[in-house]
Simulated assay, not measured.
Amino acid sequence: MNQDIVFSFFLVFSGATIFATLALFTRQPLLIAYIALGALVGPFGMGWIEHPENLSDMSHIGIIFLLFLLGLDMQPAALIAVLRKATAVALVSSLVFFATGFGLSQAFAFSLTDSLVIGLAMMFSSTIIGLKLLPTTVLHHKHMGELMIGLLLIQDLLAILTLILLGVMSGNSDMPIWQPFVALPLLVTACYLVVKGVLLPLIARFDRYQEYLFILAIGWCLAVAEGAKIIGLTYEIGAFVAGVTLATSPIAQFIAISLKPLRDFFLVMFFFALGASFNLGLLSAVVIPAVILAVLVLVIKPLTFRYLLAGFSERRALAWDVGFRLGQISEFSLLIAFVALESQLLSEQGSSLIQATAIITFAISSYIVVFNYPNPIAVKDKLRRD
């Protein structure tokens, strides 16, 4: 069925209204409703949406805005302090998660290259799940938020290196492995200078015009995100840097509040596209290893983060909280699977295993957080915090 963009939006948001209503009545997380809707009407379901990748490209803007808003809530000095702690935890935990994925895929007789890619895909936790379910305006969660952002930023850098490595292995990349480490300090310095020399004077002069401030914030976020992509980083890292460098502005909180509806609009599309892109026909071939791998991820990730963070004198309750919020694999895992499949470094079966594991861990991890920890979409009033 051919459809225009209006029909696609009709299916996404009218369908999301129905599914979200059912989810609230049955006390289910809204994220699961959006994923289920995508699977139902996508090309592997009823076929009403034939090309979910078009919506997926648009929905990526929601992730960019999410990282920008989180950057607005974090002062640069606090970020530097937490990165010192997060780096060691992120590196050690990534080795544990890689070994888990590699070992299980070898046990199920996947090829060596498949096992390597599957192991790499298991290393990362979902930025979108972890941060979407994190309260942003509750003071006593601020340290946990900084810690999670530090871990996810280190993982983002590792994911970039992984994608570069896959490109080198396939012969499709000319980017040197050192480039992200040089590009990031340059990006931060350039953004700091632009904010101090250009943006803050403009904000001080035109702070009465709310429409102008809204457009300025969006333009700054997307400009830095695009600049980051050009120099070898990711849109997410660029958006976060844009937010952090603007966090010292007196209108940072106004910008954060103004952009939340726009962020949520695109995030609904993200989860819909995720469900629509999953090939249900290949599920039977990988269902057993996918379920076992998902269970291992859901158990090993919280345990690993709990004990590593405890080693850095974090409170046990906070360490468990962070561990469960990061207890899934990542949207980067799906990107790694796509790149490796296109480069013929991963079989169709291996790609399906990564996709199935992602869907299962996204769903169960969301359930765990929504029903047990403070979050913006909790079904229990005492846990609902925005």
Rank of each mutant, 00 (worst) to 15 (best):
S105C: 08
I35W: 11
D381S: 13
F305A: 02
I300E: 00
V12H: 12
P180R: 05
L40N: 05
K380C: 08
I354V: 08
H140K: 07
H143P: 01
G130D: 13
T245F: 08
L79W: 05
V195Y: 11
A223Q: 09
G42R: 05
A358L: 07
S366M: 06
T113K: 10
I237L: 15
F44Q: 06
F181T: 07
G45L: 03
A16K: 06
V6R: 01
A290C: 02
A78N: 11
F270C: 04
P289V: 02
L193N: 06
R385M: 15
A256H: 14
E348D: 11
I129A: 13
I237K: 12
F265M: 12
A36I: 15
A33V: 07
I354C: 00
R315I: 07
Q179T: 04
Y192I: 06
D4Y: 04
I177Q: 02
D174Q: 13
F65G: 00
F10G: 11
F102E: 07
F324A: 08
V194E: 01
S313L: 05
M175P: 01
A109S: 13
L152A: 02
G15T: 12
L262C: 11
L112Y: 10
I354W: 02
L202K: 04
L11S: 05
D321R: 13
A183E: 10
A217H: 10
T137H: 12
Q349A: 01
V322N: 00
V195I: 15
F97C: 04
N279V: 05
E50A: 15
G219N: 12
D73N: 14
L274Y: 06
L165K: 03
G275T: 09
G15L: 09
R384K: 15
L69H: 03
L318N: 08
E314C: 05
G197T: 03
S258H: 12
L267R: 06
S258N: 14
S105Y: 03
I32D: 08
Y34S: 03
I257C: 08
D321M: 04
F108A: 00
Y209F: 14
V92I: 15
F240S: 10
L40I: 12
L259I: 14
C191Y: 10
V295W: 01
F338Y: 03
M148F: 02
A204T: 07
S313R: 15
L24C: 06
S277R: 14
T189P: 01
G150P: 12
L161A: 06
F9Y: 09
